[in-house]
């Protein structure tokens, strides 16, 4: 990882019918790092990726990809980056080999370089033995690997992953996460979007958190943890939720926030050990039973809760 910027986003905006989907985005991705955009569905991550990959024109602002402007030099940007889309975007009636040859040509690869890269990607994705089978006959995991392999064909300096683990089994997810680390280990800069905080936490050198089209925080994992000051997160399941009880909890010393999430109540507290007895006593006074409890050390979920007042998966 170097201090040079691979991606520099400057006041990027996107409006749909006057509604701001992405609002004045500002962040930088350093060369060689894995940078995650973390946020719930509808936060504006995919719109941001679409603008950075020159699929959508921005309504305002700009971004430099390896020094190329997405608004003025889209051709150069497209040659520099590889994009792994959220959905499996390949031709299922063509073989893996035919898919790779076609997409390689679309990125301008020809002749021996094309053949070499196709072979290398087939090896990398573990599909060399089934290169001539129709992609439609592959398992979901194999199709995912081919989907990623296509983005690597032209040896891009920057690879953008748009929520590549949505809707897949834990085993395939593990392989993809390992693959992302492997790609990064080869010196490729990775911009990774997800709404799974565990993925962002595991993969990223730095993380930016998005909500409602805005960047609400960014930094390393430790920097973000410091934002919540080491707060513990307590999730309680109550037999009922008297309004007076929640109001009382909000006023307790050491309680930073109280939020409702369905049948459960989430609290961010300074020290769970000190607060818990008071919570149980006050619940008993209101004739309310605590039927479930979960205590978590500070994490990105807590950061999101702290910044937005709601859970990341809302």
């Amino acid at each position: 990882m170097t201090s040079t910027n691979a991606i520099q986003v400057k006041g990027l905006k996107k409006n749909y019918n006057g509604f701001p989907a992405v609002h004045n985005l500002e962040f930088t991705v350093r060369e060689g790092e894995i940078f995650s955009l973390l946020g719930p569905n509808g936060a504006g991550k995919s719109t941001t990726i679409s603008m950075l990959s020159c699929l959508l024109p921005p309504s305002g602002g700009d971004a430099l990809i390896a020094g190329h402007s997405i608004t003025r030099a889209s051709g150069s940007v497209k040659r520099t980056i590889g994009v792994v889309p959220q959905e499996i975007a390949l031709y299922d009636d063509l073989s893996a080999h035919q898919n790779l040859v076609f997409w390689g040509r679309m990125y301008g690869l020809r002749g021996s370089r094309l053949s070499r890269r196709v072979d290398e990607v087939l090896d990398l994705t573990g599909l060399a033995d089934r290169r001539h089978d129709r992609a439609g006959l592959y398992s979901g995991g194999m199709q995912r690997r081919l989907n990623i392999g296509i983005a690597l064909l032209h040896e891009p300096r920057i690879v953008i992953f748009d929520e590549p683990t949505v809707g897949i089994d834990p085993q395939s997810r593990r392989r993809i996460l390992d693959g992302v680390k492997e790609i990064n280990a080869r010196g490729v800069t990775v911009l990774y979007t997800t709404h799974y905080m565990e993925e962002a936490q595991e993969l990223s050198h730095r993380i930016a958190i998005m909500d409602h089209g805005r960047l609400i925080a960014q930094g390393t994992h430790n920097e973000l943890m410091r934002m919540v000051g080491g707060l513990h997160r307590i999730t309680l399941t109550l037999s009922r939720k008297p309004a007076g009880l929640l109001a009382l909890w909000r006023m307790l010393a050491g309680v930073h926030s109280v939020s409702e999430e369905g049948e459960r109540v989430r609290l961010l507290v300074q020290d769970s050990t000190r607060v818990l007895p008071t919570l149980f006593e006050s619940a008993a006074r209101e004739e309310t039973h605590i039927t479930g409890m979960d205590i978590q050390e500070p994490d990105l979920e807590a950061v999101f809760l702290h910044l937005t007042g709601k859970a990341l998966r809302d």
């Binding site: 020159c54 699929l55 497209k78 040659r79 889309p85 031709y91 997409w103 679309m106 990125y107 296509i150």
Partner: peptide, 9 residues
């Protein structure tokens, strides 16, 4: 695949 095509040069 069309969006992917549009993301190529």
């Amino acid at each position: 695949t069309l969006a992917r095509l549009f993301r190529t040069p």
